[in-house]
């Protein structure tokens, strides 16, 4: 049986992980490779690296880092953040990433999704959708959640599938950082309207939240950052819990 995926997300700036990380068994918690290796050992099913580096000059650091990650870890990983062109994708895939995620650039020019999909296969293209519930509607946001669009989230999800996306990473901005659980309604609405895997993101605070998102939606995976980074929920404990709750996990 296909297992539900548990996916830690690491924010990368200038080649290092950011956000406070307090693992005692890692010498340098800012070292993305060390942290990634720890997650692999603990049973993470995939990793997502989100580059929040502002400048283009520092992007070279990213491709070097991707190369290092690829040589050290043996589970699939996605790299996202500021990917604007097929050229950006090429650099990251050649360095060894399995998938890239696009967000704002896909909204601005959806043809990019098709280009990546044709060149590298649809399994390579994750479309990250940031969404917020405003005026009784789930709307797509871009520019790191700073800018509202007029696009309805479910409509956009259906479109990205047509353009050739292989997966959707759906983040609810209403839930992100609250630790009150995933946005079950919009996650389910997107799952019901596409035939590609959907990863739920934003709001994980307890192990029950993971159970809930897998029981109440068709999400293929769940992504979280801080609860893993701060060691609040160790991955092996989460996986054991989900197994006892009859959620299929590795």
């Amino acid at each position: 049986m296909l297992k539900k995926r548990i996916i830690p997300c690491l924010d990368i700036k200038d080649g290092r992980t950011v956000k406070g990380i307090n693992f005692i068994d890692i010498r340098d918690a800012g070292d993305a490779v060390e942290l990634a290796k720890k997650y692999v050992k603990e049973g993470a099913d995939e990793l997502v690296f989100l580059d929040i580096t502002a400048t283009n000059e520092k992007r070279k650091t990213l491709s070097e880092l991707v190369g290092k990650i690829a040589s050290e870890i043996d589970i699939p990983f996605t790299v996202g953040g500021g990917i604007n062109s097929l050229q950006d994708v090429s650099v990251i895939i050649k360095a060894g990433a399995d998938k890239v995620s696009v967000n704002t650039s896909a909204v601005k020019s959806p043809g990019l999704i098709t280009e990546i999909s044709k060149q590298y296969g649809s399994q390579c293209v994750v479309v990250a959708i940031d969404t917020k519930f405003v005026n009784n509607e789930w709307i797509v946001y871009v520019n790191g959640g700073k800018l509202a669009t007029s696009i309805k989230t479910v409509d956009w999800a259906k479109q990205v599938e047509k353009y050739g996306a292989g997966e959707i990473l759906l983040t609810s901005m209403n839930n992100d950082g609250t630790k009150n659980g995933f946005a079950l309604d919009i996650t389910n609405a997107v799952c019901q309207n596409v035939n590609i895997p959907v990863i739920a993101s934003g709001g994980a605070g307890t192990m029950e939240h993971f159970k809930e998102v897998f029981q109440k939606t068709l999400a293929s995976g769940a992504l979280a950052a801080s609860i893993f980074h701060f060691g609040e929920i160790p991955i092996p404990v989460l996986k054991n819990y989900l197994k006892t709750e009859k959620i299929p996990v590795r």
């Binding site: 297992k3 099913d45 895997p197």
Partner: peptide, 28 residues
Amino acid sequence: MEIVPHMGWNNLGSLKGNLFKGISDNDN
């Protein structure tokens, strides 16, 4: 009308041959 690609971790069955020495049906 199904979720495609088949993406993620899955276990195997009816294992045969040298490639699967030390592997069980529960491994993903």
